[in-house]
Design a protein around this nucleic acid. Structure first.
Length: 684
DNA sequence: TACAAGTAAGTTTTT
DNA sequence: CTTACTTGTA
């Protein structure tokens, strides 16, 4: 410890981790199994760089998901301390947004562009589809979600629409021509209005770095060290960005685990990990295999799942923690029983001394948790839910933001259209006319002027109000929080008429206002909301935070600090809990089989779902239970469903099989909770 | 043309 | 359960 070379940044790292953390120059590839201290290693390497004199803001940290980005940057800043500048970074998309705002002019992009979220894209595609009269009779024509998926895949794979159709949607091959027409229409629509979707953020970033030597050298001079986490989740475009970022110094580190690649559905290509090694032949290679998270029985199951993968680079996770319970595999009669069992199990684990926040329930799709949420509500077990529902895409939030977006980008007639449709007496045809009248406006006041000119007669009242709002917003555009306040005030009467559940939605809008207090400009607020939208869970945390001024102490009850976590498996990646329950692990769901009578999906698809289950299993530190309902009420396959084939194929000794009904009897679920009221627990 | 009401169908995961 | 499309009415 007193050795001259010892450094606080290397404390407690094993040899492989130390090698990764101390190799600072040149390209490096780290293959890191689940729970092997990957983030820890990255963070220590960062601290090491700072110790050797590299300023934090010369280091760029990129990942695919924003949760991973937040976690990594947060931990790094805690280790090196504030005060020496901030590490730059975030998701690829947010990085693209920043660069394009600053240098976009170099490739002819107006820096006032608006970022479209998925719901916006759907809306545009739906419009194009009906313009081209492709809906209606030809029932076969795909829904807007499918169109969006096909077009996005074509962009993200850098291939023609036809290739995507051949590979994944053979039944739509006949529609190829019309899909291409829609694709062209979509590109033209965005271009004319200064709109940029998620995929464009990457495509345009590549163009910028490829075509503008000024932008390129700015980036290379500023970011001398680049680290990329979760590299197995990057797609072809992000790999290209990575190459462009390397620069002449090639101080580039990528970290990933091929067994945890779960974003193929949006173009992720885990082979990027191995292509990296081909591209940078002199790259240092480090493999982390010692797991510090889970007990051996949990790892045995994880290893067995990894063994089933038809393509993976074999590694074997091991740990010093030999002791531990075998994972449970629980069969429930139906979803209701599964929910009752899960809730009872959570109560039991909690009563034995595990904090609720150390317990997580994981599932594939957000709605799989609905029955459990009912049960948790009944038992008054507090929880937060991650994944699925996106705050920003809720209709009422979009309604409120629409006028703000018009102020930020007067050519955004998608948002103008949305605001117009909320006016009494304006329908599709009327909105279209007004959009045409406002086209080419150079600011929102001109848009407002156009609205006033058309606001004749009895129907004009709402139009005038909207025009006034636009003027008002333009005046206070430097104060985004005030903008939100005005827009909400304008919207409240509409909210009551449009939705039955308006009180709940009104609270959402208050949350939105609270989230937006910290922004300095309208543009940055809107871009952030689109690219890094708060989900319902984090929005709640913001509200409960200390720095929000009390507006009406009335309905804000003290949020319990200790809350159970519900999360989609996708959102759970990179996190860990002491106890983990995986529900709805039935065949048809994991793996997902959309057509129970058709053929099984191919190995690629099956592998992806196997990796998903692998990710879920490796979240558990001490205790793991997996359950499935024998019969499902709705959705995939009525009647009988067997457990996931991935579990059925596992060696019998690895899992402890139980029936939910027996376990519920064993705990005496009716009386138990009441009997235990004498026990001291965290505040009721 | 706008909009309410009623019917039918399709449901992942994230930026 | 949500939304897309149809039908009927002002």
């Amino acid at each position: 410890m007193s050795a001259a070379r010892s450094s606080p940044s290397l404390h407690g790292l094993n040899p492989a981790q130390t090698q990764a953390a101390t190799t600072l120059e040149g390209p490096m590839l780290v293959i890191a199994g689940a729970g092997t201290g990957k983030t820890r290693t990255l963070v220590h390497r960062l601290a090491r760089l700072v110790e050797t004199g590299v300023p934090p803001d010369a280091i760029l940290l990129l990942t695919f998901t924003r949760r991973a980005a937040e976690e990594m940057i947060g931990r790094a800043m805690r280790l090196i301390g504030e005060g020496r500048g901030r590490v730059a970074g975030g998701t690829f998309h947010s990085f693209g947004n920043q660069m394009l705002r600053r240098h976009g002019r170099a490739i002819g992009l107006d820096s006032r562009f608006t970022v479209l979220d998925q719901a916006d894209t759907f809306e545009i595609l739906a419009g194009l589809r009906s313009d081209l009269r492709l809906g209606g009779r030809g029932r076969g024509f795909p829904r807007r979600e499918t169109i969006a998926a096909v077009l996005s895949k074509a962009v993200n794979h850098r291939t023609a629409v036809k290739e995507i159709l051949k590979r994944e949607y053979p039944h739509l091959l006949a529609e190829e021509k019309r899909l291409r027409t829609i694709a062209e229409g979509y590109q033209a629509y965005k271009k004319g209005r200064g709109l940029v979707d998620f995929d464009d953020l990457l495509v345009l970033l590549i163009r910028l770095l490829g075509e503008s030597s000024e932008a390129r050298s700015h980036v290379h001079e500023r970011f001398r060290y680049v680290m990329i986490d979760e590299y197995q989740d990057t797609n072809v475009l992000q790999a290209e960005v990575t190459r462009l970022l390397a620069g002449a110094q090639r101080n580039l580190m990528v970290v990933g685990d091929d067994a945890q690649s779960i974003y193929a559905f949006r173009g992720a290509c885990f082979r990027n990990l191995f292509d990296f090694h081909r591209e940078f032949k002199d790259a240092h290679l480090v493999t982390l295999e010692e797991n510090y998270r889970s007990t051996q029985p949990v790892l045995d199951l994880a290893n067995a799942l990894m063994g089933q993968m038809s393509q993976s680079f074999r590694k074997r996770l091991f740990t010093g923690r030999q002791e531990g319970e075998r994972p449970l595999l629980v069969e429930a009669r139906d979803e209701r029983e599964q929910a009752r069992w899960a809730a009872a199990e959570i109560k039991r684990v909690h009563a034995q001394g595990t904090a609720l926040s150390e317990i997580a329930v994981l599932f594939r799709a957000s709605y799989h948790a609905f029955p459990l949420e009912l049960e948790l509500g009944r038992l008054k077990i507090p929880y937060v839910k991650y994944g699925g529902f996106r705050f920003l895409e809720a209709a009422h939030v979009k309604d409120v933001l629409a006028p703000l977006r018009v102020v930020a980008n007067p050519n955004d007639d998608l948002s103008l259209g949305r605001a117009l449709l909320l006016c009494q007496g304006i329908g599709r045809a009327g909105a279209r006319k007004l959009q045409a009248a406002a086209a080419g406006a150079s600011d929102a006041c001109e848009v407002a002027g156009a609205l006033r000119q058309h606001a004749r007669g009895k129907k004009g009242g709402d139009l005038l109000t909207l025009a006034d709002l636009l003027d008002e917003l333009t005046r206070v555009r430097e104060a985004p929080a005030e903008c939100i306040r005005l827009a909400v005030a304008h919207y409240l009467p509409i909210l009551g008429e449009r939705f039955d559940d308006w009180p709940k939605r009104q609270r959402d809008l208050e949350q939105l206002a609270a989230i937006c207090v910290r922004y300095r400009s309208l543009e940055s607020m809107l871009a952030d909301l689109a690219i890094e939208p708060p989900n319902a869970a984090t929005a709640g945390q913001v509200l409960a935070g200390p720095d929000v001024d009390e507006q009406d102490g009335g309905h804000r009850e003290a949020a319990p600090r200790d809350r159970l976590v519900l999360s989609t498996i996708h959102s759970a990646k990179g996190l860990e809990w002491k106890a983990v329950l995986i529900i709805q692990a039935l065949d048809g769901c994991i793996p997902m089989i959309s057509d129970p009578f058709g053929e099984d999906p191919d190995d690629e698809k099956l592998d992806e779902d196997l990796r998903l289950l692998y990710v879920a299993v490796t979240r558990a530190r001490d205790w793991l239970a997996i359950s499935w309902p024998r019969s499902t009420a709705r959705g995939f396959g009525y009647g009988w469903a067997p457990e996931s084939r991935f579990l059925a194929d596992v060696k019998p000794g690895l899992l402890e099989r139980k029936r939910a009904a027996d376990l519920l009897r064993g705990t005496g679920r009716r009386s138990a909770p009441r009997c235990k009221t004498g026990r001291r627990r965290s505040g009721a």
